[in-house]
């Protein structure tokens, strides 16, 4: 008999405690484990403008070339990770389709698309108290004038390397490496107690 492989979020064990917390804060703070996502690491030369154009067409929006910004449309987004590196994010199940579309857009140009969907887990932190909570462990300035909607950063949350994305005025998404999920979850719950 072959056991069926079941995917389980590294945050799954914390979902109940996160839910209880949202209730306790009367909605001032909600922490939600986001569903699995398609996550592709994209490497290419942004100085190749016709390539940028072709990749943008596949994505459905302009590839963000300004450091630490996000391009998005609908349920698909791309986060700037480096001068020649991005993270393309979309709904789960589009891994093969999007990889194929991006790869064929290279059209011979140098670059790579790598499926890193299992690398990081997404956690949404939302509410009037979201910024205050994150500021306990993030050294970057979360002031909306500097880090408003459409901004992202790779930095340290407490001692874990994460990607932080500001979705809107009161909503953040953090991308956490699977092996750091338990640490980040317990750190968040602990920081909340303060």
């Amino acid at each position: 008999m072959i056991a069926e492989a079941v995917r389980r979020s590294p945050f799954a064990g914390y979902a109940e405690r996160f839910a209880a917390l949202s209730e306790a804060t009367g909605g001032e703070l909600t922490i939600r484990v986001l569903p699995f996502a398609t996550q592709l690491n994209l490497r290419m030369d942004p100085k190749n403008l016709s390539l940028v154009q072709r990749i943008s067409e596949v994505l459905g929006f302009g590839l963000p070339v300004t450091p630490n910004t996000v391009g998005a449309k609908g349920d698909r987004r791309a986060l700037w990770l480096g001068p020649d590196e991005w993270l393309a994010v979309g709904p789960d199940g589009q891994q093969d389709e999007l990889t194929q579309a991006l790869t064929s857009a290279f059209n011979g140009a140098l670059g790579s698309v790598t499926d890193v969907s299992a690398n990081r887990t997404l956690l949404e932190i939302r509410g009037a108290k979201a910024r205050e909570l994150l500021a306990h462990g993030l050294a970057i300035d979360l002031d909306p004038r500097l880090f408003g909607p459409g901004r992202c950063a790779q930095t340290l949350l407490a001692k874990a390397q994460v990607i932080v994305e500001r979705r809107d005025e009161s909503g953040f998404v953090i991308y956490v490496r699977a092996s750091f999920a338990a640490y980040v979850a317990t750190w968040l719950l602990d920081a909340l107690a303060e």
Binding site: P67, A139, A153, L156
Partner: peptide, 10 residues
């Protein structure tokens, strides 16, 4: 040069 000023532990 890309991200601006950050804490030295990064």
């Amino acid at each position: 040069p890309w991200c601006g000023e950050r804490e030295d532990n990064e």
